[in-house]
């Protein structure tokens, strides 16, 4: 079983690739993709399964791009 307790959903087309969320993640879960979205921005993506659903990234995102989920009990 993966050790994931949380996960985020990123609205890729609305992400402006500003990267201000990246340093707020305590587990280095998020980084900008090498690919770009329809507007030409390098969008945010998850790069590992360490997300705890802490909401830090969502709370600093100026464009409200991130939705956060967290399982209450570890699976």
């Amino acid at each position: 079983m993966a050790k994931v307790k949380g996960s985020i959903v990123i609205k890729i087309e609305q992400c402006k690739g500003c990267e201000v969320c990246v340093p707020t993640c305590p587990h280095e879960v998020i980084a900008l993709s090498k690919n770009v979205n329809g507007k030409g921005y390098h969008y945010l993506e998850m790069v590992n399964d360490e997300c705890t659903g802490c909401t830090n990234c969502a709370v600093v995102c100026p464009d409200a791009v991130i939705t956060v989920y967290r399982v209450k009990k570890v699976l």
Partner: peptide
Amino acid sequence: NIPTTADIVKEENLVYKK
């Protein structure tokens, strides 16, 4: 390399949305 998050991304686990 990203695990399936289908178990987590469910309405009852929502903690933050716009």
